[in-house]
Design a protein around this nucleic acid. Structure first.
Length: 401
RNA sequence: GCCCCCAUGGUGUAACGGCUAGUCACGCGAGCCUUUCGAGCUCGAGGUGGGGGUUCGAUUCCCCCUGGGGGUACCA
């Protein structure tokens, strides 16, 4: 409806990796063609003008009972209505839903153009698809009930119907139609939420479709090879973001570090750097989305987080002692790498005869500011000796309380 | 109101009318591993909405009910 709107949709499609060969075709740009077809239908009696309003239609049905659709009398002006036969029925043949029969006596003569001659969707879409040579119409289930109108237009034009496939709609966790209040409800939301397009593709494909082997992680190329409209489910599926998160984590962990670094850089709006790469490498198996990265590993760049509860819990007297001892051990570690750091800290654990966490957690809180971080030894190695000691000293300098 | 559609564990799904509905996945519970953990491993609980039919036999076919969804605009 607006250029921004169109841009948003195309953007989302591209991000998802769905591209196109032609179009999109704008309905308004084809208004001349619509008028031309409309004139033809008017001339051969398939359509007529009527000034009947929605209220008139309702009154008509109250008068005639529910088993009779609205039929207007041709007038000189007014909206254009398509003539629906009184007898018979229109059957929608659908690849996923089978045949659905709509009795003509239940249908009202649908308005296909406004009084000013501008086309309405159900008319325009039939003409546009016909002219574009569309062979398969694949869309949401919410269009099923309107399909007979489109079929009737095609029939009046003497044209052949395309193959239809109506897909089930997506619902929120409460079973209601997916909407903003359910959180991530659009492709844009998923992108902003740090999901990977390949994971979204995989998850979405499994919502309303599955084949005999019942696999869960299916790469896109295999998805494209195995997907069959005939196997699409007929019932609406609930969108479960927890499962998407899990699946996204799987895809995230399968990325090589350089690729993960590129994705993180793009997501965070930062340049690719060695620092980012090092952080990505140690955060990779603990994040499920790109959005999880900064809360987990941001302290590497920003300095320790400010978690008062963590400090209270781990930087009390015993913790400070352990921290001071750990500091002493780290000074001599050579080289300052994961293996040797681990050796030094485990040495402190043994010397103090305490549980590992009693040493590791104070160190973690000192350098990360909080109790959750990538692996501790890895974190220290990435920070480097100087920065690690600086942070530990800063923590020791603060009097608890 | 009227028309149309749908119904397998909490969720997504698998099962020519045929063994005890699955070596499926998420989630959940327990355990293991373990420096935290949203990671990894093992085990476990949990389902054919209700009622009638048809059939030797029904998740599967038919009808009713219930529940849910969609449509019904001079919207798309």
């Amino acid at each position: 409806s607006t250029p921004e709107n169109v841009e948003q949709i195309l953007d989302s499609l591209l991000w998802l990796g769905l591209d196109w060969d032609e179009g999109p075709i704008s309905q308004v740009a084809r208004s001349d063609r619509h008028r031309e077809v409309l004139e033809r239908l008017l001339a051969d009696g398939h359509a007529y003008r009527s000034t009947a309003t929605a209220g008139d239609v309702r009154a008509f049905k109250e008068r005639h009972g529910s088993d009779r659709g609205f039929r207007g009398a041709p007038e000189a002006d007014g909206a254009v209505r398509l003539r629906v036969p009184d007898e018979g029925a229109t059957v929608v043949h659908d690849v996923v839903r089978g045949d659905t029969t709509f009795q003509h006596f239940h249908m009202d003569d649908p308005v296909i153009a406004r009084g000013d001659g501008s086309a309405l969707y159900n008319f325009a879409v039939a003409v546009d698809d016909l002219d574009a040579g569309i062979t398969h119409v694949v869309r949401g289930e919410d269009h099923v009930s309107n399909t007979p109108k489109q079929l009737l237009v095609l029939e009046a034009l003497g044209a052949q119907a395309p193959v239809y496939a109506h897909l089930p709609l997506l619902h929120g966790p409460d079973g209601k139609k997916l909407s903003k209040r359910h959180g991530a409800a659009s492709v844009q939301d998923l992108r902003d939420g740090g999901y990977l397009p390949e994971a979204v593709r995989n998850y979405l494909a499994l919502l309303g479709w599955g084949d005999e082997d019942d696999e869960t992680i299916i790469p896109t190329d295999e998805l494209a090879r195995r997907f069959r409209l005939e196997r699409v489910s007929r019932n609406p599926a609930r969108f479960d973001e927890r499962k998407l998160r899990w699946m996204n984590g799987r895809y995230l962990r399968a990325l090589d570090v350089d690729e993960l670094t590129r994705r993180l850089a793009a997501y965070l709006g930062r340049p690719v750097s060695d620092e980012l790469r090092a952080a990505a490498a140690i955060a990779q198996d603990k994040i499920q989305t790109l959005q999880d990265f900064w809360p987990l590993a941001g302290f590497l760049f920003d300095g320790p987080a400010d978690d008062a509860a963590a400090r209270r819990r781990w930087l009390h007297d015993g913790g400070r002692e352990a921290l001071a001892e750990a500091r002493g051990a780290l000074v001599d570690v050579e080289p300052f790498d994961v293996e040797h750091i681990e050796g030094a800290l485990r040495g402190v654990v043994e010397a103090r005869e305490v549980k590992p966490g009693d040493v590791f957690q104070p160190v973690r809180v000192a350098v990360a500011g909080t109790t959750v971080s990538p692996g501790l030894f890895e974190t220290l190695a990435v920070l480097g000796r100087d920065e690690a000691l600086r942070r530990i000293d800063a923590a020791l300098a603060v009097r608890p309380g």
